[in-house]
Design a protein around this nucleic acid. Structure first.
Length: 920
RNA sequence: GUCGCUGUGGCGAAAUGGCAGACGCAUUGGACUUAAAAUCCAAGGACCGGUGAUACGGUCGUGUGGGUUCGACCCCCACCAGCGACACCA
């Protein structure tokens, strides 16, 4: 085989690796090795479309890293699996009545085939899918751990529900009350939450299936209705999810994204009485005696509780706003306003969150007719209903301070509500102050309190502290912390997800009586039932409610139960897959304790930035619960995280803006694109790959045309791993050309088998050759460790360019090159390694040894500057001192000429780098 | 609107305080060939001066404007553009 032919050698080595189980990972790290390394890719959703070129980007990066560290003697865990639950399989099932498991398995088989085609060094024996029954058995088990855990705010950790202290008043009410008290404190609990109910389709929709308040399929109106849902108390872990970010080796950008998403804020909760003014004193007296109620529900009908981050502006609160879904809306609305209010609330229920926030954001709202009393100014202030206040943040009600909050200001301007200035900027011109005083602008910053009784003159921070102290003493407020992060809505009204291992006890009437229990651990897994078809049944209930009674009803310990019919969201399976990879066959636990302690945490996790918030947050949350309950050994799962950049592609538009397929475009040497047939000149744009832009690159086609090694190499050579970058087929051709050059460097093109070229000889390298060899070893090793693969490849290209010109090529130098190249282009490297006379894989061959002494040169060229501009260069011995270098510079003919008649003000000398004369 | 990332030759990029443009694509010239392809070798930021042509010398040059420094693609301030994420969180 004289010519480099990836179509032959790539399948050959893939078969070799597979049949020899070359990349099987040991059960435990080798105690005599260089340590353990757990490198993880974000596993893919196996879509019907197969791999796109974005997948191999991250996978190649991790593969290079793993292959490198195997050569350096580490025990490497590098697994792959599939995140296989999800909507597309279910939609396909509804359309074609194909069971989702069937289409999912076909897609997984296709993905596996495509991944193996790229030569990744996964331990395929550890492959798993979240849809495997033996896998989701343990997903269900983890859910039951959450169900069995409450968060102890004092110890700041999750503890077994059996350790939850039960107040005597609850115990006194009997076992049902105790059970309910426990249920209310579990990390997995039930609550009413709004879902997208589409009466037209007779089904509940996921958020992404709702577009502009209409269903994606069929364009029917979608209504938000409350439904009993499973929630996970992720907010309990909010503080730890923020503070533990400090311990992680993640980019500051991702950390900020996570902590902004959690959105912790400190402020105050304040109670406003809804009473006639003459009863205010009595209310205040009773509050001062009892202190503020600890929860909103028992704060009383006559009290409206708000959350504010600016309690210092309380004196400027001139009205209040409650969310349309707020429980007090009905109770406080006066009869003459009730028609307008209920119409407004109904309209709001048809708006999605997106509708409420998009558009021109013009504030809308209706007066309830009710008044509350500002507890500090004692003035009655009107209560409005408006959808700019969200029911699920804070208390669902606000005190509006239009002078110092831009949203309140807009609302007050729209509805002509009074504006009272209570903060002045610390420093402002007279005009600025006058503008604020007139109410022409809204000042939302910190400053000094005015017009606020006892707070006057205090800076914002001090005013906040004082008012919180006063409110606490009066029993009408307290400091409070809030998170933008909501508790995690964990149930989906879908078929293709993990069933909840929960049973609802049935009362005498055959209906659930409110008692729930976990499916006993020994009865896990709860598998999905067989369904006749997957079509919606028309009720706002999950599809599992269509299952046969034999699945749906269970008798246990003499009691009848109905199974929970919600399923878990796609996130569930991906929350803990990194643990299962450690002991994929373990039948007694989600993960083997001893192995978990040996392999965790994940040392390098690479994936797309689209998962920067949710997946990583949910995973970290589950991990912390497992940690608190003693099932894992480390508080964080992913030590180092890197997000690969998106791969874009060129797309072409003609003058009318129509998209032209890449096949019918020619580009000239200046990059001007024209249409092949019409010769019309086209505009080139860079965009995400998509069918509609006709710019999708199919990796399988690239492998067929150029080879997997060329694809891998190009994906890494395009630019930095984290950068967004456009795909170019010319670039693929370029790296393929490099692989051809590597091949010809060693293999005689006229031979019938892989005969080495005559210039390869078993001789020691010359000093020049050694310098190239060791410079390259050093640079490639450093670059791989820094994930700077593009520059590592450039260094190898220089190596090849150098040795192509050498008449004698030491065999040892060629072996070094093959090993350096092997993580990047493993197939061609194995083939060349064999041709160089080796009988086994190079996967565990020791990495070439770097000798810095070999890289030294005897003389270096140093630039000489005058006033910072390079004017000449001087050649000096490599080790020369600053004084010697300066002397050499002063003796340089050209410098002598340039410095003549000038006054030297300063000389900057950096040994080995440069000399700069500053002259006048 | 807020936050983040990115702006360097015809193109992908390198250099993160010290010779801007490594490496690759495309281009041009040469060798080989009857010829072409392939391959190998070489050239190349722009402009000006200089010369028969070289050599050589100079000016400008990393989105824009300012600043720090002996010296800035790199650090600081302000702005512009493109991409991405979030979006009334009180």
């Amino acid at each position: 085989m004289p010519r480099y032919n990836p179509a032959v050698i790539e399948p050959k080595w893939q078969r070799y690796w597979e049949s020899n189980k070359t990349f099987r990972c040991p059960e435990m790290p080798d105690p005599n090795g260089a340590g353990k390394l757990y490198v993880l890719d974000m596993f893919p959703y196996p879509s019907g479309a197969g791999l796109h070129v974005g997948h191999p980007e991250g996978y190649t990066a991790t593969d290079i890293y793993c292959r490198y560290w195997r050569n350096r003697g580490k025990s490497v865990l590098h697994p792959m699996g599939y995140d296989a639950f999800g909507l597309p399989a279910e939609e396909y099932a509804i359309r074609t009545n194909t069971p989702p498991r069937q289409s999912t398995e076909a897609n997984i088989a296709n993905f596996t085939r495509q991944l193996k085609m790229l030569g990744f060094s996964y331990d395929w024996d550890r492959c798993l899918a979240t849809t495997d029954v033996e896998y989701f058995r343990w997903t269900q088990w983890i859910f039951l751990v959450l169900f069995d855990t409450w968060y102890d705010p004092v110890a700041q950790k999750g503890r077994a529900i059996s350790e939850l202290p039960i107040p005597e008043s609850v115990t006194a009410q009997g076992p049902d009350a105790v059970a309910q008290y426990r249920d209310k404190h579990r990390l997995a609990y039930q609550d009413d939450a709004l879902v997208n109910w589409c009466p037209g389709l007779g089904t509940v929709l996921a958020n992404e299936e709702v577009i502009d308040g209409k269903s994606e399929r069929g364009d029917h109106p979608v209504q938000r209705i409350p439904l009993r849902q499973w929630m996970l108390r992720i907010t309990a872990y909010g503080d730890r999810l923020i503070s533990d970010l400090d311990t992680l080796d993640w980019s500051p950008g991702i950390k900020k994204l996570q902590s902004d998403w959690i959105g912790r804020s400190v402020g105050a909760e304040v109670d406003f009485p809804i009473l006639p003014a003459d009863r205010f004193d009595a209310w205040l007296a009773s509050k001062s005696a009892s202190g503020p109620a600890t929860d909103n529900a028992s704060s009383g009908v006559d009290t409206l509780r708000v959350y504010t981050t600016r309690p210092d502006t309380l004196y400027g609160a001139t009205y209040m706003v409650i969310a349309p879904e707020h429980p007090l809306v009905q109770k406080i609305t006066t009869s003459d306003q009730s028609a307008a209010v209920s119409e407004y609330c109904k309209a709001a229920s048809f708006k999605s969150d997106r509708d409420r926030t998009e558009g021109d954001k013009k504030k809308t709202g209706v007066f309830t007719g009710a008044y509350a009393i500002n507890p500090l100014t004692r003035s009655p202030i009107p209560i409005w209903v408006a959808d700019y206040v969200l029911i699920n943040y804070g208390t669902g009600a606000i005190m509006a301070v239009p002078a110092h909050d831009t949203r309140d200001y807009e609302f007050a301007t729209t509805f002509k509500l009074p504006v009272v200035i209570v903060v002045h900027p610390e420093s402002a011109t007279h005009e600025e102050l006058a503008e604020i005083e007139r109410g022409d602008v809204c000042f939302a910053g910190a400053g000094v309190a005015v017009n606020s009784g006892p707070l006057n003159g205090l800076k914002t921070d001090a005013a906040k502290a004082k008012v919180i102290e006063d409110l606490t003493r009066l029993g009408i407020g307290r400091e409070a912390v809030n998170y933008k992060l909501r508790d995690w809505l964990f149930s989906r009204q879908r078929f293709w997800g993990e069933p909840f291992p929960i049973l609802h006890e049935l009362g005498a009437d055959g209906k659930p009586n409110g008692n729930i229990r976990a499916v006993p651990l020994e009865q896990l897994p709860v598998d999905l039932p067989q369904l006749e078809d997957y079509k919606p049944h028309g009720r706002p209930e999950p599809p599992l409610a269509k299952a046969d009674d034999s699945w749906l009803y269970v008798t246990l310990d003499g009691k009848r139960y109905r199974r929970e019919t919600n399923t878990m969201p796609q996130w569930a399976g991906s929350c803990w897959y990194y643990l299962r990879f450690i002991s994929p066959g373990c039948s007694t636990a989600a993960v083997d304790r001893e192995k978990e302690a040996a392999w965790m945490p994940v040392d390098l996790y690479i994936g797309g930035a689209e998962h920067a918030v949710l997946h990583l947050l949910y995973s970290r949350f589950w991990h912390k619960v497992l940690y608190d309950r003693g099932y894992v050994s480390h508080p964080e799962p992913f030590q180092k995280l890197v997000n690969q950049g998106m791969i874009l592609s060129y797309a072409y538009k003609d003058k009318r803006g129509a998209l032209i397929s890449g096949d019918s475009v020619v580009e000239d040497e200046n990059g001007n694109a024209t249409h092949k047939e019409t010769n019309e000149s086209l505009e080139r744009i860079v965009a995400k790959m998509s069918k509609s832009l006709k710019n999708v690159i199919d990796p399988e086609g690239v492998v067929q045309e150029y080879g997997a090694d060329a694809l891998r190499l190009y994906e890494m050579f395009m630019g930095p791993l984290e950068a967004t970058k456009p795909w170019s087929m010319n670039g693929v051709n370029g790296v393929r050309n490099f692989l051809d050059r590597v091949w010809r460097l060693m293999i005689d093109p006229r031979s019938d088998d892989n005969t080495l070229v005559d210039s390869i000889q078993d001789v020691p390298a010359t000093p020049d050759q050694n310098r190239m060899i060791h410079t390259t070893i050093g640079a490639v090793s450093r670059d791989i460790e820094a994930l700077s693969f593009n520059t590592a490849i450039a260094r190898m290209m220089e190596f090849v360019n150098f040795f192509t010109k050498e008449a004698t090529r030491p065999k040892s130098a060629m072996e070094t090159l093959v090993l350096l190249l092997s993580p990047f282009a493993p197939h061609v490297a194995e083939e060349l390694w064999q041709s160089l006379g080796h009988g086994t894989t190079l996967a565990y061959e020791p990495w070439p040894k770097y000798d810095e002494a070999m890289t030294k040169v005897s003389e270096i060229e140093v630039p000489l500057q005058v006033n910072g501009k390079v004017r000449a260069k001087v050649t000096v011995p490599a080790g020369c001192t600053e004084a010697e270098l300066e002397q050499a510079a002063r003796n340089h003919d050209r410098l002598v000429e340039l410095l003549e008649g000038k006054q030297i003000v300063k000389v900057v000398v950096v040994a080995g780098r440069m000399v700069n004369f500053v002259v006048k």
